[in-house]
Design a binder for these strands. Sequence first.
DNA 1: TTGTATGCGTTATCAT
DNA 2: ATGATAACGCATACAA
Lengths: 326, 326
Amino acid sequence: MHDVAAAAGVSRGTVSRVLNGGYVSTEARAAIEAAIASVGYVPNTAARNLVRRRSQAVGFLTLEPHSLLLEDPNIGAIMLGANETLSIADHQMVSLVVDSARDTERVARYLSGGFVDGAIVVSARTHDPITRVIASLGLPAVFVGHPPDLSREIPWVGIDNAGSAQAIVTRLIATGRSRIGMIASALDRDSGADRLAGFRAALGERFDPALVVEAPLYDYTAGVKGMRELLSREPLVDGVFAASDAVAAGALEVLRESGRAVPAEVGLVGFDNSTWALRTQPPLSTIHQPARDVGSVAADLVLRQIDGEHPDPVVLPSPVVWRASA
Amino acid sequence: MHDVAAAAGVSRGTVSRVLNGGYVSTEARAAIEAAIASVGYVPNTAARNLVRRRSQAVGFLTLEPHSLLLEDPNIGAIMLGANETLSIADHQMVSLVVDSARDTERVARYLSGGFVDGAIVVSARTHDPITRVIASLGLPAVFVGHPPDLSREIPWVGIDNAGSAQAIVTRLIATGRSRIGMIASALDRDSGADRLAGFRAALGERFDPALVVEAPLYDYTAGVKGMRELLSREPLVDGVFAASDAVAAGALEVLRESGRAVPAEVGLVGFDNSTWALRTQPPLSTIHQPARDVGSVAADLVLRQIDGEHPDPVVLPSPVVWRASA
DNA sequence: TTGTATGCGTTATCAT
DNA sequence: ATGATAACGCATACAA
């Protein structure tokens, strides 16, 4: 910038004014713009942020085992939704992957180092070091999904997992099934635990713990193993609630192998309304997750906090999508 | 930091020394550390970077239509590999999504604003504005895959798509197939075009353009539509090379629907060795892409450029993985 | 309208 | 071993 000022024969202050917008004469502006072009000047945004004390950037972190990051299509959609909203507000979304203890420490430094004005956190857990850093730093943040403890300090956005699970299982019951099982995934996370709770609520008196098999992740493999286990525990099972569409796809494959017709003999429902749901034969009845909206709302919630507001948590609607699998 | 210095009764220089490492007396160090804790001081890394003129960060950008970003499991693996290597070198990987014209401009500013010391670019195209910015900025960068023009200015890392395609198709031919078709995806990208070239090379004289159907993306849907088209063009097709495992999975579904046994009546091979390959029935013969290594090498190549070196492009091995589908 | 001066939070070069 | 002090590249209040 020094060079530009010299080349244009003005002071650095004036150069700064044409860059940002302020009173500057037409001639001076022309001279400066010419100088900028000839010198090939690009402003150092980092320096600008130092003086403005804002970075115009928001971090997006996924506190997940990396395998899940690769599998879960929702996370990608959430990112895109968040980015879109941040982009409109002229904020840069920077996605940070934390995949090791070393990452955790470095990301914590990054967050507290003035590089971001806020953060969107997917799959936060209360005990997570990063979560603590954010809380103690007072960094504007929003969680996707509701972590047990900090829900009151930090706003969150999500869906009603329990209610939606209850709704679709109720509907599954209404198709006349009597032995309904569940392949429950990720019970250590709020989404997983809530879906199981909804399943249980829908069944009420008829709930049978023996018909719930547990799996660590929301993936295809969980469906394969889970369905085999379910079948061995109760060969007469005629309804299955899979904790996600990927899980349901795995279960469907096993049902096919074992010669059970879907939906004639066994009704199957999933969760997510992901691409899986339309790829299977028959297509899956499932719960629609408005993942893109979740991201968009998350972005909005950080932005508002950056502006000094204290927004409330947001729960987005997640309707049942009924197809042919049940 | 001013507060810390005051509280500890020393100068800011000394505080800086305990933070970074330098000669400082035991008493001073103790006093300063106590002050840091009581004040709750966290260093502003942004300010440090300004004076050091290094950010210790590397950008990771995916110049893809966002739909593909969500679908492609390779990109996630590449990210993880890159992050691991960067992390060991104490560099922060920041992933930037460019999903609109507005994004393009903002990301370009971000890149030239001093926030990153280098960049890893997936799916670069020569005409892309971001690519031009990087080139004109002289920012240390590496491409994943080889863009046509800038290959000499900017190093890249990738696999031999053409050679691998030729290898697996040759092997498919060796199983005694006589009417072999290809579902070719993403012909506007080097990977897509090269895979087709390899297919053609393997067939030599027997290559028949009528047996090549084109699809825009490497996804499941492309396989479904492509296989239907192929079947209608040549009902007697007995071998299929799908441009990716996801494409192969879609094709397999159509083959099943139309009553063709795989591999008995039709041999099918894919590309990527992704999770798709093991989920299908039968599992797919395919090409193993060392995606994680690609990311790791990419990181290494930027790091070396940041250190002033001028590394050559790297081609990683991508062996045939033979399973039951052909 | 424009120039000058000061500060943003650090590191680094000097002396001491 | 430590304390001043000058950068780093920019924005801005104030003066002119």
